[in-house]
Design a protein around this nucleic acid. Structure first.
Length: 105
DNA sequence: AGTAAGGCGGGCA
DNA sequence: GTGCCCGCCTTAC
């Protein structure tokens, strides 16, 4: 029952590659897995996935700098990012373009 | 088994 | 800055 789909697996692997103190975007992940149009599906995957200690979904934000959502509570996400050194203001990542992490380029 | 709706976004008007 | 539509995956009925 814990069988994850290939899509989910790829998303989890990508998100897991995000280093601490840095963030990535759903669009980047979607592109990284060759599914540029499945940006929403990526969010879905993280939403229902075992985000716990395996995948730091809190390091994934929107492409416009917003932190996006979080199944466990958006505040929790902010707190986690803040602890990692990522400053957030009004649901928006500060220096977003500066700490954004890209898989490919 | 098939169909329908939802969801942590993105892009465009 | 806001609103709308799109496209993609998963889950539920």
């Amino acid at each position: 029952m814990n069988e994850l789909t290939e899509f989910e697996k790829q998303v989890l692997v990508m998100v897991r590659k995000i280093p601490s103190g840095r963030v990535s975007t759903y669009a980047e992940i979607a592109k990284a897995i060759s599914r540029p149009g499945a940006v929403r599906a990526v969010g879905n995957a993280l939403n229902k996935n075992p985000d716990a200690p395996i995948v730091p979904c809190h390091r994934v934000v929107k492409s416009n700098g917003e932190i996006g959502g979080y199944a466990r509570g958006i505040e929790k996400k902010i707190k986690l990012l803040n602890k990692e050194g990522v400053a957030i203001n009004n649901n928006q990542v500060i220096d977003f373009s500066d700490i954004i992490f890209k898989f490919k380029r």
